[in-house]
Structure formats: C-alpha cells, structure tokens
Amino acid sequence: MKKTYDFGRILVTLLMLLIGLLFLLPFIWMISTSFKPEIDVFKYPIEWIPKNWQIYQNYHDVWFGEYPFGLYYWNTIKVTLITTLVSLTVSSMAAYAFSHLAFKGRNFMFLIVLMTFMVPNTSIIVPQFLILKELHLIDTHLGLIIIGSFSALGTFMLRQFFLGIHKEYLEAARIDGAGQFKIFTTIALPLVQPALATYAILRFIWTWNDYVNPLIFLRSNNLETIQIGIQKFASESGAFFSLVMAGTVSAIIPLIIIFIIGQKQVIEGIALGGVKG
C-alpha cells in the first residue's frame, strides 16, 4: 500500500517543529558562538552559521588554557562512573529484596526509603557536611561518590521492574538449589536489564550534571568537576564569551551523546517510573 501524507498533519508537524525550535535555539546559539571569533559574538543579525570560523583556537584555548578542563573531565568521568556503578549495585540489591525476599520489617523499611525521597537535598547539606567531616571525607572524591550513591529513587524505580518478574522463575531456581545471591545475579538481574540500563543512564546524567554536591563537599581546585569548572570559568573570564560557550559545549557534549544513544531507554524509563532528578 502506498503511504499517503495528510496535508493538515504536515502543517501541524511543521508548527510543532517551529515551537520545538524554541527549545533548541539556545543550544544552537551556544554551539555557533563557540565556533566564532570573539568580535562576532554579539553581531546582529545573529550569525547562526559563523562567517569567520575559529573552532580550533577557541577549543584549544579552553582545553589547554588556564583552567584544567582535561582534569575537570577526568574527575567528572571518574566520579560519575563509580557513582553510577555503586548506586546501581546498592539500589538493585535493595529493590530485589523489597520485591522478592521475605523478611521482618520489610514494609516498614520500604516506607522509610520512600520518606527519605521527600527530604530536599539542600535541607540536610549542613549535617551531611559535618558527618563527612567526621569521617575525613570532605574534599575527597570518595565522599562525593558516597553522597551520590544511595538513592531512594533508584530503589523505588527498580523495585517496580523487579515486581514484574514472576515468582515462579525465581522459585524454580530455588528448588534447583541456587542461593539467593546466585538467583539475583543470574536470573533476576538479566530479566530487568532494560530497567538497569535506564537507571544507569539517568544516574549518569544526574551525577554528571550535579553542581550542589561538588560545590559543598570539594575544596581543592584539582578535585573539581566539570560543572564547578565551567561555572568558575564563566564567572572569572566573563568577557570571553566565545570561550565560555566552548567550555559549556564541552561540558554537555558527553550527555548529548549518551542521550542520543540511549534516548529510547531514557524516555521510556522516565515515562514508566515517572521519576525526577
């Protein structure tokens, strides 16, 4: 059958794309500005496609200038990857227990997990700071990782998916003599793989974007992550907007790549879990 296009539908699509452009223009402006020499930045009419290109020099100045963007990147990748891994492990274990293991106090503990979900981050930073200080974890990446790894949200979200596994699968393995840990790793986890991928991508994005925790728990310049890095760069070298934009583009590129690769997981995961960072 020949595919036919409906004229009205095309019109509505165009209209929505136009509105969608409002959501993309700031990004397009950011990228195009990062490709220009400084004097062209505020030219009007806006040069969406630069007349004079200065990509190499701008990005070279950002990455090999005064601010150690390479180091910021490395710190962020390290903290983000480890946080994602630890959070995935801890959350999936708890989620599995809350969905398939029987133990006393289970509902009560789950209620506690849900309650912690409500507590705004900012309202507990002071005591968190004091606790990390007592543990000598202020100004360390380990401290930052620990703060980011225990997420009620992850537990809640993964539990929804574990609940979808039929008890019979797990029961069969138990009768065959498999231990709980083995059932968890060889049967339960593979069955919720898509959910794990979704949560991993989301946790990666949230940790990469985290600004508050590094701001509060880190002190040394050489430990700082990219969000703190670009903020400092932007406020201290304010007049060089093309460079500031090159820094900002550098900070969000990994996310955009990950989002484009995993967009199906991210969008479905958000829709299913109704989660918020």
């Binding site: 929505m16 794309l17 969608g20 959501f23 993309l24 700031p26 990004f27 950011m30 994005i205 990469w208 974007n209 600004y211 969000q227 670009i230 903020q231 900002t248 900070a251 969000i252 996310l255 955009i256 989002f259 484009i260 967009q263 991210v266 969008i267």
Partner: peptide, 15 residues
C-alpha cells in the same frame, strides 16, 4: 519532537 522538547531537561542546569 520528543527528543527536541526533552533536550533542556538533560543538559546541565549550569550550562
């Protein structure tokens, strides 16, 4: 369209 509208949400608030 979904991706376009979702872009601001995934990019860092600092950027």
């Amino acid at each position: 369209l979904k991706i376009v509208f979702f872009m601001p949400y995934i990019s860092s608030i600092v950027a």
